[in-house]
Amino acid sequence: MVLCVICVALALIPLVGVVGYTIVRGAPVWSADFFTHAPTPEGIPGGGILNSIVGSLIIDGMAAAASIPLALAIGLYVSQSHSKIAAGIRFAADVMAGIPSIVVGIFAYGIIVNTMHHFSAIAGAFGIAVIMVPILVRASDGAFRTVPGDLGEAALALGAKRASIARRVLIPTAASGLFTAILLAVARGAGESAPLLFTAIGSQYFTASPMQPMAAMPLTIYLNGIQAYPTLQRIAWGTGLLLLLFILILSVAGRTASARLGRRA
């Protein structure tokens, strides 16, 4: 029993430490300016991370817009089919979820950056989307499968077509589970930095053009955190706290939605 308390403590202390230090070091950095201004040039005080916040929203928004319809369609197919193909896709999604994010980054670099011949937000969004797809496929597959089989059969018996069964029965019934899936996938995508390193690459300037290099919160944390200057490290902590809050809120919201449904995501 004592041993177990020690184990739990050893597991939780560092985990709580990460969150605790991010709050303690990040909160003092926060100010209105921090959220409403783009960075100032090196050496000039002030400035903020507005460009990173907007950049993250744009990149993750594009990634979500691309991955959600695709992945939900795959999840729907896999959940309703008992074929070997469906089992294979499920397995492939599991395996794909294990591909290192840095490898995904190189893929995005090869496909988009090499083709466009310059770094861009859209290449970053592509990388994030590739990370999100397998997570969404598995989670939405799970959500669709919680729909009782007799609902679909009842609809079939009423003469419904497959497409309208999906639209009128499956999707509404699984809605809360799908919502959870989306929130958790976005949370995961928003925290990724490795796929952005050689795609969106980061930027000191405010931009909303998906064809340009763009800042994003994870990149800002990385690029500032590894510098030896306390002022830059402070920016990393402040951004880290915002990103952490954003992700934890998404995760808690996702879990609450699935808890209401009475099942585990």
């Binding site: 990460v18 969150v19 070091r25 925290g191 990724e192 955190g225 490290q233 880290g240 992700i247």
Partner: peptide, 23 residues
């Protein structure tokens, strides 16, 4: 504690890096 552990899985890698490097 189970929920806490599951939530902590969501903490991004880069924040672990920041904590590891600076703390």
């Amino acid at each position: 504690l189970g929920t806490a552990v599951e939530l902590l899985a969501a903490v991004p890698s880069v924040i672990y890096g920041l904590w590891g490097l600076l703390v």
